[in-house]
Write a protein that binds this DNA or RNA. Structure first.
Lengths: 340, 340
DNA sequence: CTGAAAGCGCTTACAG
DNA sequence: CTGAAAGCGCTTACAG
C-alpha cells in the first residue's frame, strides 16, 4: 500500500488538508459531521499522522529522553532502575509522549554530550535527570541548551529551586533507620554510604549522624560506591578487628552493598542479626530473598519515576517549575534486625 | 540564541544550502575546503541538523523501537531484561540509532497496537521483538505494516526463516543440564518451565525429556509463569508428598522461579542440595547470592541483546534477512547441585 | 465553516 | 563543484 497522507484523506473526502488537520487535532474550524467523517476514515485506513512531519511543523518532538549513566557493573543488577523506568513509562504513555533511552558509562562527558546532541537535533522535548551532584553542571548546561528538565531525587533541604524536581527528605528517612536501631539497643553503628558526590548521600550522612548524636549513639562512616564489592569490603574492614567497642549494626546505602555486607559477615563467621544487624536504604527482591531477610527502607521507585515523569509533562505543557516532595519512606523490618 | 539552521550556515559561509548538506553528510559534490569550513562552523556553533526535518526528508526516523511486554510483577525484578537492554543500547549507539522504549502490560493487544501506531506514524524504522510464540501473530502483523523487525530468541529448530532473528539451540542447553544432574546420580527430576505458549519453552521441555530418556531418567513437567510464586508453588505441590520415588532435583525456567523454589524447600524442611538439587535456566545475581548459591545456565543476555540490535541495524541497512545462532550456554555449577 | 498558501528544516535530483 | 527549486507531510494564520 502506498503510504497514505493527509492530502490523500482530504482528496477522498473532497475537503481541504486544513480541515483534515483541524478534525484530527480536535481544533475548532470544522463541523462535527466533517470531523466524524475524517476520524472514521482515518480509523478505517489505520492511518496516523507522520510523527516527523508533525514534529517539524510543531517544533515539538513528542518524546522525552533519559540518559542512564551508570557503571556497567551496576546497570544490569540494580533493580531500582528498572522499577523506576516502569513508573516513568506509565506516566509518559498516558501523556502520549515517547521515551528515548540512552545508556552510557559512568563518564559524565558522555551524558553531557548526549544532552547537547539531543538539544541540537531537537530530538526530545525534555529530559529526566537523576542524582543531584555537588556542583552539578547539568542544570546550567541544560538551561544553556534550552532543554527543559526534571531533576529527580534532589535533597529535601534545597530551597525553592530554579527547576522542576522531586525531592526526598533523607534526614527523616535517616531518623527512621537510626531510631529503629536505637530501639533494638544498638549504640555503635556503621553507615556505609554511596559516593559523597551525590547530594542525597551527603544529606543521609548528616541525617544519620545528627539523629545518632541525639540518641547518644556513635556512627562510623564509610564511603562506598553502591557495588556489591564495596559492601563486602566495608564490612571486612570495619568488623574484622572488633576491638573493645564493636560495631553491632551496619546501614548500607543500597541493596547491592547490603548483599555484599551479608556475604562478608558469613565469611567472617559473624551471625546476623545476633552479632551484627543490617539495614538497607533500598528495598528490593534481594533484601526479601536474602537469609536472613534484610530490613530495608521501602522507597517505591515506581511511584518516584511516575511522579518525575508527570512533572516533566507538566513543565512541557505549562512551562512552570514545580518541586514535589516524595512521601516519607517506610521501614520494612525483617530478620536482619530482629530483636536480639 | 535563535536556533541555527542549515540556511543560516549557508548564508554565513556564502554558499548554498545544498553544499552545506552535502558537506555534513559526507556526500560528494563539495570541495574538501568547503567541507572543512562547514564542519568547523557547525562544531563552533554546536549545531546539529534537526532530527525531525531530516527524518521527514529522508523518510527515516533514525530510531528503532522495543516493546517490553511483561507482567508488572516481573518487570521490576527480572534482571534479564535490564542486561539485555544494556547490550541493545550499546549496539544502537554505535550505529547512531536511538532507542524508543515502551512498556505495556501482558495484554498482547497493547503490544500490537503499539506496532500499528509506530508504523503509521513512522516513528521508528524497525522493532525488536521478543519471545517467539506458538502461532505468533506478530511476524505477519509487522510484515503487513511494512515494519522491519528482528525476532530475538526464536528456537533453534526453526528452519531458514522469512525474517531476521537470533536463535538458541535449547535442546543442547537442556542436554547440558540433564547430563549434569545425571552425573550427580539424579534419576527422577522435575522441570518447572515457563508457559508453553513460548516456543523456546516447548523446545526446552522436549529437550529435557529427550535427553532424560536417553539416560534412563524420569522427568515430571510443571508449567509455571516465571514468577517467584510459581516456583514456590511448583516445589510445594511436587515435593510435599514424596512417595516412594521422590524427586531429587528441580530445573527451573528462570531465576525468579528458582528463588521461589528455594524458599519452598526451606518451608518444607528439605535440604538443598542434599535432599533436593536446584538448577536455574537463567543466571543472575539472585542465583549467586542465594544460599545455597544456585547452579545456573549462563546465557549472556547482554551479548544477546547486542547481537539482536546488530541484526536489526543490518536489516535496515541492507534489507536482507539473517539468522544468527547464539553460542551454547555454559553451566555455572554452584552449591545447589554440589555432589551429595 | 472551508480553501489556498506559507512555513517547519532538511535532502536531492537537476541545470549550470 | 555550486545554486535554485521541489519535495518530505504536517500545522496554522489568513482570506473568503
Amino acid at each position: 500500500m502506498a503510504k497514505e497522507t493527509i492530502a490523500g484523506l482530504a482528496r477522498r473526502l473532497g475537503i481541504s488538508k486544513a480541515s483534515v488537520s483541524y478534525a484530527l487535532n480536535g481544533q475548532p474550524g470544522v463541523s462535527e459531521l466533517t470531523r466524524r467523517r475524517v476520524l472514521d476514515l482515518a480509523e478505517e485506513l489505520e492511518w496516523y499522522p507522520s510523527s516527523s512531519a508533525r514534529a517539524l511543523s510543531r517544533s515539538r518532538a513528542g518524546a522525552v529522553g533519559m540518559v542512564l549513566s551508570a557503571d556497567p557493573l551496576l546497570i544490569d543488577t540494580e533493580p531500582y532502575y528498572m522499577a523506576m523506568l516502569a513508573g516513568i513509562e506509565t506516566a509518559l504513555a498516558a501523556g502520549d509522549v515517547a521515551l528515548m533511552l540512552r545508556m552510557v558509562g559512568k563518564d559524565p562527558a558522555q551524558e553531557r554530550a548526549t544532552y547537547e546532541r539531543w538539544a541540537g537535533e531537537r530530538k526530545v522535548d525534555g529530559v529526566l535527570v537523576f542524582d543531584h551532584l555537588h556542583d552539578d553542571p547539568r542544570p546550567a548546561l541544560l538551561d544553556r541548551l534550552g532543554m527543559p528538565f526534571v531533576l529527580h531525587g534532589a535533597p529535601g533541604s534545597a530551597g525553592p529551586a530554579a527547576f522542576s524536581g522531586t525531592t526526598t527528605d533523607h534526614a527523616v528517612d535517616a531518623a527512621t533507620i537510626v531510631r529503629h536501631l536505637h530501639d533494638l539497643g544498638h549504640r555503635r553503628v556503621a553507615h556505609v554510604s554511596g559516593p559523597r558526590t551525590f547530594l542525597h548521600e551527603e544529606e543521609r550522612i548528616g541525617g544519620v549522624a545528627a539523629c545518632a548524636a541525639t540518641h547518644g549513639m556513635e556512627v562510623v562512616p564509610f564511603e562506598g560506591n553502591y557495588a556489591l564489592g564495596a559492601g563486602h569490603d566495608a564490612v571486612v574492614s570495619l568488623l574484622r578487628d572488633p576491638g573493645d567497642r564493636p560495631i553491632t549494626a551496619v546501614v548500607f546505602g543500597n541493596d547491592l552493598m547490603s548483599m555484599g555486607g551479608l556475604l562478608a559477615l558469613r565469611e567472617l563467621g559473624l551471625r546476623c542479626p545476633e552479632e551484627v544487624a543490617l539495614v538497607s536504604w533500598d528495598d528490593s527482591l534481594h533484601c526479601q530473598l536474602a537469609s536472613p531477610a534484610v530490613t530495608a527502607l521501602s522507597r517505591n521507585p515506581g511511584m518516584q519515576g511516575r511522579v518525575a515523569a508527570e512533572l516533566l509533562l507538566a513543565l512541557l505543557e505549562t512551562g512552570t517549575f514545580q518541586t514535589r516532595p516524595m512521601p516519607v519512606s517506610e521501614l520494612v523490618v525483617r530478620a536482619s534486625t530482629a530483636a536480639g
